[in-house]
Write a protein that binds this DNA or RNA. Structure first.
Lengths: 353, 353
DNA sequence: GTCCTAGGGTGTTACGTATAACCCACCGCG
DNA sequence: CGCGGTGGGTTATACGTAACACCCTAGGAC
């Protein structure tokens, strides 16, 4: 009479229950269900174990398994925000590769947004096998590695500045955003634009610094061009305000706006319309990311597609390589320009219709 | 010489190490760090334990803790897709409340997208305390509850159809989307619209069925109105195609398009422009959700704001209530219309400029 | 002086799994 | 007839934590 026969609530069957039902020992259950029974357990026994497990609805207790094995086969993905579909793509890609290797991925949107009560990352560290940080600022990444005294977790950084003291347990996977910017500028130059303003995200992060540098380099390489830069808060309104400043500045007007992000580009399009300018008739606009927003706008946005899922997938692969002490390549993922309706030659005659 | 002094790699300090460093037993460490030492351990001892833990960089092993406590203080959030910022909001809200109660939230975008290799949810069930499913189809939710033989996990459904066999361990939190639709229709009617087409998401889910019914009810309540419905795939292109069909149908044209989602509304705006119609001059357009997309469009979208974070937060609260066997209310969250530039009286004279 | 109590800890066990180390019966072979 | 091998299992243990059930000492009451 120690306990009710049918477990009252949440009393999940254990491997011991399965063993009893199948008339074998717990060890045998573990062997069979763990797939390591070749030549150690008779076929008939294995079958009856599997049947018993099925009948009881047995699922192994992951906490116990993790404790035993000393690892969790789980990676943490840290992203700046989840309200951006780009990071949804990164997660999806990482989770796909993880699943193929029996790993799980836990998502952690970085501090802002989540209450300060007991940093979930902090308490989770002990049960994680590795960390993937996407587009994080350097100091935030430093904090992730923990007190440095204990076991520093393997860390993969996506689209982030390289760590100064990068240990051996670190890898990086980046988009080739510099090349993306180069493609944008070449596209515009080939259309005939010579006076181009960069609407630059006012965020201190690797990916945006690279874009600024690449923009300056690409423009500087061609004589007779006029480059300018206008900082913008990373919102639609921020893009709108920056574009408005750029387009109303005294002197000859820029004929093209290169925006650091599709969000900013959406704002730039709004600003142009408010000023009575047509896109792309009077001013061409480009973005970055190729969010679904890019095709929702009218005209559709010429933008640089960043393969977010690919980034997440490669990041997870790199982490797995790190964990298995395999050699790893740190690829620079190619990106490509998607040319749509928001760019056209400058001062073109109004479209036929 | 059994092992190197400084743990070679990943050898995290345990509570036993802390105990040795502080000169106490492991049990005392557990008491102190667990906060249950009031009147059982002297202040001085507690302090030295904490100092030792700090010095060693000790973090409790969650796998062990979970095994011991039989729970993980972790909930699973299942969403249809992560590439939609709405669900990012749901997650954020749920995670905030969870953190306040020492809970964590694991995100699981439902099957499509994630490889089929060993369903992560399936293997995770044993280590979860509950499930929150957002906007899921009925059959998918059924599957979540598992083989029904073992312990069925507490389940909270957000914006979903009520389960037919809802057990005691189930709760529901919904947006009052019917009221949202009513507000939209009343807004348009008060502007003078009488011929309105509902661009309806062709997705078999509770939230969209409710919208369709509410639209028909609100229109049916006012004599002299003409309601129509046009199904649309839940993408920009789907919305565009549906709106095009709706606006080119023979007979008097609808003066307003009520879209089930901001994404669809964006497509509808594109369709209108392609047909040479101005928004809102010739046709008014409304959306649902109030995504950032809504303010990125030009004109900005009149839409119904669904408080996604609030939904996630209330869902998590409901789950916590379920777990603690507390009475719970199943609120119907109020939503409200955000009136912007995409709606105006029908057949209005062209705007001044 | 003896008993009781409270304060301050410690020993021990259990959680569920994986696996190393055994164990035993049976069969074929010399 | 004895002996080694092998197929088919079992027993025992460890993972790190939490907490129950003790234990010991000292101080006060009688």
């Amino acid at each position: 009479m120690r306990s009710t026969r049918t477990a009252p609530r949440g009393a999940r069957p254990t491997s011991k229950d399965v063993a009893r039902a199948a008339g074998v020992s717990q060890a045998t259950v573990s062997l069979v269900l763990g797939g390591k029974w070749q030549g150690r357990v008779a076929e008939r026994t294995a079958v009856s174990v599997r049947e018993a497990a099925q009948a009881l609805g047995y699922r192994p207790n992951l906490a116990a398994r993790n404790l035993r094995l000393g690892g969790t086969r789980t990676a943490l993905l840290v992203v700046p925000a989840l309200t951006n579909e780009f990071f949804g793509g990164v997660y999806t890609g990482a989770a796909r590769v993880a699943a193929e290797h029996g790993f799980g991925v836990v998502l952690y949107p970085s501090p802002e947004g989540i209450g300060p009560a007991r940093d979930p990352f902090d308490s989770a560290r002990a049960t994680l096998d590795g960390v993937i940080a996407s587009s994080m600022a350097a100091e935030a990444v430093e904090a992730l590695r923990g007190p440095a005294g204990g076991g520093a977790l393997p860390l993969v950084m996506l689209d982030s500045a390289p760590l100064p003291d990068a240990g051996e347990l670190t890898a990086a996977v980046n988009h080739d955003v510099a090349d993306g910017m180069r493609q944008v500028v070449e596209h515009l130059l080939s259309l005939g634009h010579r006076r181009i303003t960069h609407v630059a995200a006012a965020v201190d992060s690797w990916t945006f610094r690279v874009r600024e540098d690449a923009f300056a380099a690409a423009m500087g390489a061609v004589p007779g061009t006029h480059a300018a830069s206008e900082p913008a808060a990373l919102t639609v309104m921020g893009g709108q305000a920056a574009a408005e400043r750029a387009l109303t500045r005294p002197g000859p007007r820029a004929t093209a706006l290169v925006c650091d992000d599709d969000i900013l580009a959406a704002g730039a399009c709004k600003a142009a319309r408010r000023l009575g300018l047509s896109v792309p008739g009077d001013v061409s606009v480009t973005g970055f990311d190729d969010l679904s927003l890019a095709t929702a706008l009218d005209p559709e946005l010429t933008t640089v597609r960043l393969p977010a899922q690919e980034l997440g997938a490669r990041g997870m692969s790199a982490l797995l390589a790190l964990l298995e002490a395999r050699p790893l390549d740190e690829p620079r993922l190619p990106v490509h320009l998607v040319s749509r309706g928001s760019t056209a030659p400058p001062s073109a005659p109004a479209p036929p219709d």
